[in-house]
Design a protein around this nucleic acid. Sequence first.
DNA 1: CTGCATCCGAATTGATACTG
DNA 2: CAGTATCAATTCGGATGCAG
Lengths: 139, 139
Amino acid sequence: MSQRHIDVSVLAVRACPVAEVIDHVSGRWTVGILTTAAQGPVRFVELERTVRGISRRMLTLKLRQLERDGLLTRTVFPTVPPRVEYTLTEIAEELLETLQGLTAWATRHRGTVAAARAAYDRARNAGGNGDDALVPQAT
Amino acid sequence: MSQRHIDVSVLAVRACPVAEVIDHVSGRWTVGILTTAAQGPVRFVELERTVRGISRRMLTLKLRQLERDGLLTRTVFPTVPPRVEYTLTEIAEELLETLQGLTAWATRHRGTVAAARAAYDRARNAGGNGDDALVPQAT
DNA sequence: CTGCATCCGAATTGATACTG
DNA sequence: CAGTATCAATTCGGATGCAG
């Protein structure tokens, strides 16, 4: 989610690291892009195909963001047609590992969350669209 | 994030847990709300004061979302004036712990990321506003 | 005190045509 | 292939005002 976040406080007086990470990682596509790139060097089209649903525009934008943050390395091969490969940097790989903790948590409590939602929705009449209601992003 | 996310694939064929977590946790306020609530039962106003910058509207929205996901417990005391307390559920506490891994990562590589950004921005002339640029504001 | 509802500008994202 | 440019559709989020 990009930095529209001006105020990040909450956890610490100084810039909060968590907020920063969350900001880097959150967003619909980031994790998907990183995990795909983790398999080895990937090309633009591969990402476009693998990260289902992402638009060309978003992919480009996210790719640039990740590159800027030092999570992805972009290599251009002066061939024709052009060939560009993206690779994870070391810190990105570390990040991905760390992320596994979250994966574990999610997996472990998937059922609990689902149940909670069902209960909540059932509680107030027929409401709830089954999906995430009331939303916001993102972050 | 929020469920505008219809397609979550990428990591697995089945619903991707990571995407779900990211979706729950991401967003400007969630982590702040959770960490505040972690200190013990908190009231609406306390959150409003502690989570700097959040609007009443957003706070309410997020609180509901968290409650629905089973991360927060909402207790209403039939007093007058009304008193409502929010408490973390067990899974939320676990989540918060897991999140510390990210905090660590962020802290560890804070400098690296900063440097990467600086380099990136410097590379393409005067660009970069120092913040997350991903959105090259016009002009 | 809590918190839902509405108005409305701001930011994000998607779709698509176009270029090197 | 790998993007960029542009336009339109959503969605987000802040500011009230009102109610239990």
